[in-house]
């Protein structure tokens, strides 16, 4: 039963991710935590799909996870852009880069 062991690992990762999203202060850290939360959920799904030796693997969770991976990376990229832009807005008043903000 390799599956069940990985279900446990996935649950631990998901719990860790939830904890991180709530507690960690830095937005980049929150994004990392969100990704770890996602990986944990994916791991649970795929581990459940593996039904032991000799039996076929359930392809439906695999397709769901594949979709999820691509969505997760695009969401991460969007989060990073948001982080960097809010970073700019915070930094603008106190630094010398307020010149070309908000143009266009």
């Amino acid at each position: 039963m390799t599956g069940l062991g990985y279900v446990v690992v996935g649950l631990v990762l998901a719990a860790m991710g939830i904890w991180g999203v709530v507690v960690l202060a830095h937005p980049l850290r929150k994004l990392l935590a969100l990704n770890i939360l996602g990986s944990g959920v994916f791991l649970v799904l795929v581990a459940v799909a593996d039904r032991g030796a000799g039996q076929a693997v359930d392809p439906v969770p695999h397709a769901l996870v594949l979709t999820g991976l691509v969505v997760a990376v695009s969401a991460t990229a969007l989060g990073l852009v948001l982080m960097l832009r809010s970073d700019d807005d915070r930094a603008a008043p106190s630094r010398d880069q307020s010149d070309d903000k908000g143009v266009g």
């Binding site: 279900v7 649950l11 631990v12 719990a15 991710g17 904890w19 507690v23």
Partner: peptide
């Protein structure tokens, strides 16, 4: 407090999914 609540939420989710 936030940390403990987060831990609790994480554990709760863990238990439910398990």
């Amino acid at each position: 407090l936030e940390g403990w609540l987060a831990l609790l939420a994480g554990l709760l989710a863990l238990g439910l999914v398990a």
